[in-house]
């Protein structure tokens, strides 16, 4: 029996390929005989192209998680996934994920089996301007029980630091245009320390850069998320914390008045170590309710606007798909 590791690229499910003892991959159907193994999709985070492929098959809610390094973006994703693992989500049930191994890998350091005594999330590494995605499919447990599919970005905070400082860099982040929800992370752990005003200003600058470069879609909901909110709750009695938050939110409302009701504020404590009585995933259910309630008005072809004319793999894919969609519509 072969102990060869699987090929690096997931195999298309309708064209089974097999790894022989030699490690060579041969076409099962062409050979006409059953060899040993079929490679399965790796289930790791999806590339831009893979995410677009998935979005061709069914409507997706695209959720962009934006914010500086270590502001809790990946921890939010892991806690959402863990809430389903423990059936702590009301009104929705887990219905599947094409990226289960990717979720598991991100949860590992916060699990007992990792050998740690303090939970941790590994930092997402910077790998260029294209994002990686995690997929989650849920189903309402009430009414007509519709399915909802989510694609969450999981990108390094470093990418957003580049975008904050440069509209040109921001324009490279094509995935922003697809977002139904743009979550901007304000780290409450830094909100209780000196330098908190700079932290808030940096986040404001990031949103401004995204708006000025017109990378945020006109119906996209912008949610400013106070992450690690347990830090505020643990120190609420201390002077100035509440005032700080109020001032920051007031400043955001004024600066981004054009967003109107599309600008929202949320508080989450995905892993509330500073105030454990809040329980895992504090505030996450409210976000999920908000996402699932958003109608999917974006047509499939809006994912591939004509202005995307670069040479990146995802842009070429988009161009191909867009031209075929247009041709089909013309024929009809």
């Amino acid at each position: 029996m072969s102990t060869q590791p699987p090929a690096a690229t997931p195999t298309a499910p309708d064209k089974p390929q097999i790894v022989a003892d030699s490690g060579t991959t041969v076409d099962l159907l062409a050979e006409g005989k059953a060899l040993e193994f079929i490679n399965l999709p790796l289930g790791k985070e999806l590339t831009d192209v893979e995410a677009l492929e998935l979005a061709k098959s069914r409507p997706m809610q695209w959720i962009v998680l934006a914010g500086p390094i270590d502001s809790g973006k990946t921890t939010l994703l892991t806690s959402l996934y863990e809430l389903f693992q423990w059936k702590k989500v009301k009104g929705f049930a887990f219905a599947g994920s094409t990226t289960l191994p990717a979720f598991e890998e991100r949860c590992y350091l916060s699990r007992r089996d990792s050998g740690n005594v303090v939970p941790h999330t590994r930092r997402t590494l910077y790998e260029g301007p294209d994002p990686k995605y995690l997929h989650l499919r849920i189903r309402s447990t009430t009414g007509l029980r519709p399915f909802t599919d989510f694609l969450f970005t999981d990108v390094s905070g470093e990418l957003f630091e580049h975008a904050r400082d440069s509209v040109t860099e921001c324009k490279e982040m094509l995935f922003l245009k697809r977002a139904h929800h743009f979550l901007l992370f304000l780290d409450s752990a830094k909100g209780v320390q000196q330098g908190r005003w700079a932290m808030a200003d940096d986040c404001k600058a990031l949103l401004r850069s995204c708006m000025d470069s017109e990378m945020i879609w006109e119906d996209c909901i912008v949610n400013v998320v106070w992450s690690r909110f347990d830090y505020f709750m643990a120190k609420e009695a201390e002077d100035g914390h509440k005032l700080f938050r109020n001032e920051v939110e007031k400043e955001f409302r004024k600066t981004f008045a054009r967003l109107g009701p599309r600008l929202k504020f949320s508080q989450i404590a995905a892993r509330p170590l500073e105030k454990p009585d809040l329980h895992m995933g504090y505030g996450v259910q409210a976000l999920l309710d908000q996402w699932a309630a958003t109608p999917l008005e974006m047509k499939a072809r809006d994912l591939f606007p004509t202005s995307f004319s670069g040479l990146r793999e995802s842009e070429l894919f988009a161009a191909r798909h867009f031209s075929s969609t247009t041709a089909n519509e013309a024929n009809e």
Partner: peptide
């Protein structure tokens, strides 16, 4: 406070339900 063990993911330890 303990040093984080940044051990690589062990897929065999993934939950049975997953």
């Amino acid at each position: 406070k303990a040093k984080i063990k940044d051990s690589p993911w062990d897929s065999e330890k993934s939950p049975t339900q997953v």
